[in-house]
Design a protein around this nucleic acid. Structure first.
Lengths: 145, 145
DNA sequence: ACTATATGATACTATACCCGTGTCATATAC
DNA sequence: GTATATGACACGGGTATAGTATCATATAGT
């Protein structure tokens, strides 16, 4: 399950992707535009900086910007940055040691197969693709990116 | 994320599928065989009865049995019985009303697409298939179904 | 140099969910 | 009648989620 924290992270990344090339953008600006609690967002952005998805500059005129081109950042990157365990279907998929029976467990095999597909799909969705989709449909609507 | 409760439910269903035709099996037997805390399992089985996946008979010689053939019960059935929100990738996938921007949200669209695939996959995995896989590989191993 | 503006790093709280337990009532086979 | 089984709740500890609060630090512009 994608938590709200991760959801906010995606929104923030999308906003920054949409404004890539505009220089550094402050957390306050992102919070306002994306309707995310400021202090909560601060911690999220901090994490995204720590995982090298964002680059920050301090002080006046400072802020955040994407560390890579929007084409080079996937939804999976963002999700994994926020939660190393990703959207894991079942914990036994992640740590097979958790389940004594995992070596012989058919359920485990099936879940792993599905999990691999999900991760591949998320990895194939770039921020650029998402931004393109959104702006193509509703440039003038309120509260859109 | 599949919770441990759901995981137990799957294990229990698999055990009962494997012993389909053997008559009613008590919760105590399932708990012992599948290494699930008895009282916890009781509540889980109660839920599976309530959602018509299991049929129970009370009293001596009573217990649980599958309400349908193992071929007719999917992993999705079990997961949905335990948690109506299933393995939902994101809550906005389920209740679009949660997110004001969902109508124009590309992320929402992509997640829905993946979610549909996941559900279809889970729906295509029957208990019979799982039991067949397991027993084909390790009939003599300890702690297997 | 000073100040306003920006992030960095923690620590804190309240709520909710997860996992498991405990108790008592009720039905039924022998 | 009694042992055996499920039915229906209520309770509690631990942990994660969602959000807040505070202070330190860096920097652009005056």
């Amino acid at each position: 399950m994608i938590t709200r924290e991760t959801d906010y992270a995606i929104r923030a990344m999308l906003y920054l992707a949409h404004h890539a090339g505009d220089g550094a953008i402050s957390a306050a600006t992102v919070a306002e535009a994306m309707d995310i609690p400021y202090r909560f967002l601060r911690r999220i952005l901090s994490r995204l900086v720590g995982t090298n998805l964002l680059v920050s500059t301090r002080g006046k005129q400072g802020g955040l910007r994407l560390a890579r081109d929007p084409e080079e950042v996937s939804l999976l990157d963002v999700v994994e940055a926020m939660d190393p365990e990703v959207i894991t279907l079942n914990s036994c998929v992640l740590k097979s040691a958790l389940c004594a029976r995992s070596a012989y467990c058919a359920v485990h095999d099936e879940l792993c197969r599905i999990q691999i597909y999900v991760n591949a799909e998320l990895g194939a969705i770039s921020l650029a693709k998402l931004v393109e989709h959104e702006s193509g449909r509703n440039d003038d609507l309120p509260h859109t990116i």
